[in-house]
Amino acid sequence: MNRRNVLGRLLGCALLPAVGALSACFPGVAFARQQGAFDAKTPRETIEKLFNALQPEPTKQVRIVAPDIAENGTVVPITIESDLSGVESVAVLARDNPRALAAVAKIGKRTAFPLSLRVKLAKSQDVQVLVLAQGKLYTASRPVRVSVGGCGG
C-alpha cells in the first residue's frame, strides 16, 4: 500500500456515507455482500468488487487441499492452509460456477489456519483462494474434476 493509495482511500471514506465508508476502507472483509461481490458472475469481476484494484499474486504459501476428482459436485470438501502472516481475509472462488464467489472469511489476530468448508461445484473447474495479508493480495488455485454437477439447472 503506497501513500497515494492511502490518501485515495481516506478521501473515499470522507465522501461516502457511514456504511459505504467502511467497505471503501477495508476491501474484501465482511462487506462483500454490500459491494455485490456475491452477485458477480466472473472471477475477475468478483476480485474487483472484493479487493478493488489489488492484483492477486500467485504464491506457494497458500495451499488448497481438495479431491482431484469429486464424484458429487454438491459436496466438495476444501481445506485452506496458509503460512502467510498478518492475514486479514480469505475468499474462496469456484471460477466456473454461475456466481464465482462461495465464501469470504475475515481472519482476525486470533484466527488460525487450516480452514475447512464444503462447496458446490457446477462442473470441473479451478477452485481459487485469495488471501489478503498485510495489504497484499495472494492467490492459489487447484483444479477439481467433477462427475456430477452441483448447481442444478
Binding site: 456475491f38 456466481r99 462461495a102 465464501a103 472469511a105 475475515k106 482476525g108 484466527t111 468448508l117 462447496v119
Partner: peptide
C-alpha cells in the same frame, strides 16, 4: 474469533 459471509455455493 471468526466470521464469514457465504454464498449459495456452500454445500
Amino acid at each position: 474469533v471468526f466470521s464469514a459471509h457465504w454464498g449459495p455455493a456452500i454445500a
